[in-house]
Amino acid sequence: MAASTYFLLVAFLALVTSHAIASDPSPLQDFCVADKDSPVKVNGFVCKDPMAVNADDFFKAAKLDQPRDTSKSKVGSNVTLINVMQLLGLNTLGISLARIDYAPLGQNPPHTHPRATEILTVLEGTLYVGFVTSNQADRSNKLFAKVLNKGDVFVFPQGLIHFQFNPVHDKPAVALAALSSQNPGAITIANAVFGSKPPISDDVLAKAFQVQKGTIDWLQAQFWENNHY
């Protein structure tokens, strides 16, 4: 086989393989309700016996039409996530849902979803939202941001840092988000960097953020709460 033909074949296989593992596994049957009690560990969850499946496996009384309490959140938001952990019938279906409530001037701080793209719809109020690109060839990270009003939609690409902020002083906001994974995960940037256990060395962080170690020590001493209840 000519070297050029071999190279093209390898490149094609790499492309196909990378596409195949870029999202949740495709279902090979009508459904695969998660069996959380199974001792078998796989990438996801083992299927429950189909003969034991019932309608409740695909249902959750989440009451997503009702406001959530944001008063206990230091960042002024409350994320109610419905993923495979709460709704077992989502297993292998590659989708989940979240309601996000924002207090006046509240935010869903910069974070990423390592396994999902997110599409967000504003149900009430106004939001300033955006995401930042990965490192570009010119060493920049471009911000894409918009102000959204009721009924507006915005997409956050998988894995990229993004945020939402309610800029209004006297009115709350509500959004509904759909995510392209049964278990999208969330990495809140400040929490992960300054609130890890055990903490990242302040020598490392001081050099990374170009600040004094005392600043890092102060940040690591704060209580970094999770707004995903």
Rank of each mutant, 00 (worst) to 15 (best):
V129I: 12
F154P: 00
I119Y: 06
Q136R: 15
N166M: 04
K146G: 04
E118V: 06
K146W: 09
F156L: 09
P157Q: 13
V122P: 00
A137M: 11
V122E: 02
N135A: 13
E118C: 02
P167R: 10
V129S: 07
F163R: 13
Q158A: 07
V122G: 00
G130M: 11
G125A: 09
F163G: 13
F156C: 10
N166Q: 12
E124D: 13
H162N: 03
V153R: 03
A145C: 08
P167E: 09
S140Q: 10
P157N: 15
P167G: 09
P114R: 13
V168L: 03
H162W: 02
A116Y: 01
V155P: 03
K146V: 08
K150I: 07
N135S: 09
K150P: 01
G125Y: 01
Q158R: 15
G125L: 05
L160E: 08
V153I: 15
P157T: 08
R139P: 01
Q164A: 15
V168I: 15
T121A: 12
D138K: 01
F144I: 15
H162R: 04
V155D: 02
L120T: 12
G159M: 10
V122A: 01
G125W: 04
V129D: 09
K142E: 14
F154G: 06
Y128H: 08
F165Y: 15
F165R: 10
L148H: 01
R115V: 06
E118Y: 00
L123F: 06
P157H: 12
Q158G: 03
F154T: 07
V168N: 09
Q136N: 14
N149I: 04
S134H: 06
T133D: 07
V155Q: 10
V153Y: 07
N166G: 11
Q164S: 14
G159L: 10
K146E: 14
R139L: 12
I161A: 14
L143G: 05
H162D: 01
F131G: 06
F156N: 07
L120W: 00
L127V: 13
Q136F: 08
F163W: 06
D152P: 00
A116H: 09
P157E: 09
F131C: 05
A137L: 08
F144A: 12
D152V: 11
S140N: 14
L127F: 11
E124V: 01
Y128G: 02
V168T: 14
V147H: 11
G130C: 08
E124P: 00
N141Y: 04
F144Y: 08
K142G: 03
G151W: 04
L123M: 08
V147Y: 09
L127K: 08
V132I: 13
A137S: 12
G151N: 12
